[in-house]
């Protein structure tokens, strides 16, 4: 599920290889809201009884950003294999709940402003782009540390999501104590080998 407003960008990535699972587009961040995703890549595990058995958690596919995320991709992949093949879970229900970060009302309102911004962008009438940007800006004021909003907005306003603005955001977020989400449940990280 891609948190992208533009289908083209998603298709470009999702058709590089033949995939055996559906790739969905969550342009209004409906599922991000429902499941509490505040950054990507992140995953939720749901069992056969429709129960969430692992909360929204950073799940890097590789160790490219290991020094930033402090999460080893291999540890996560092994945990996933254990669950899929052997039904072994490393978190119980109460640990899953403890790890969840329920949203603030400001974040919920920010998500609604963002939805209005996307709707206006698609409506494309006279002045709608101005209105769209106004609501994107309001969303960022309300949720200054939410990555799906701050970084997710960047391509919508012509800002490089890996450029100066992004690193300024990361810096501010780090200095604020990395608020809003956790990376790794603590069980995914091997000790630093440096």
């Amino acid at each position: 599920m891609a948190l992208d407003a533009d289908v083209k960008a998603v298709i470009e990535w999702a058709t590089k290889e033949a995939l055996t699972f559906p790739v969905l587009i969550d342009k209004f961040h409906i599922v991000a809201d429902l499941y509490g995703f505040v950054n990507v890549p992140a995953a939720i595990w749901v069992d056969e009884n429709n129960k969430i058995v692992r909360p929204a958690d950073g799940t890097p596919g590789s160790d490219l950003f290991r020094s930033f995320s402090h999460v080893d991709s291999e540890v996560h992949h092994n945990l996933l294999r254990s669950w899929v093949h052997n039904n072994v879970l490393d978190l119980n229900d109460s640990q899953v709940r403890d790890f969840q970060l329920p949203p603030s009302q400001e974040l919920q309102d920010a998500r609604l402003h963002r939805r209005i911004a996307i709707a206006l962008r698609e409506r494309g009438g006279v002045g709608d782009e101005i209105g769209s940007r106004k609501h994107l800006a309001r969303a960022e004021e309300l949720a200054p540390f939410d990555w799906t909003i701050r970084r997710g907005n960047m391509p919508l306003v012509g800002v490089d999501p890996f450029g100066d603005e992004f690193f300024k955001f990361v810096d501010g977020w780090s200095r604020a104590g990395r608020p809003g989400y956790r990376l790794g449940t603590g069980r995914e990280t091997k000790p630093e080998t440096i």
Binding site: V46, Q108, R115
Partner: peptide, 20 residues
């Protein structure tokens, strides 16, 4: 334009139910 969504308490409750 108007957008409606779940409030923070509603979301906190639905998340902690662990029901997907």
């Amino acid at each position: 334009v108007v957008a409606l969504g779940d409030s923070a308490p509603t979301r906190a409750e639905s998340m902690s139910s662990l029901d997907a």
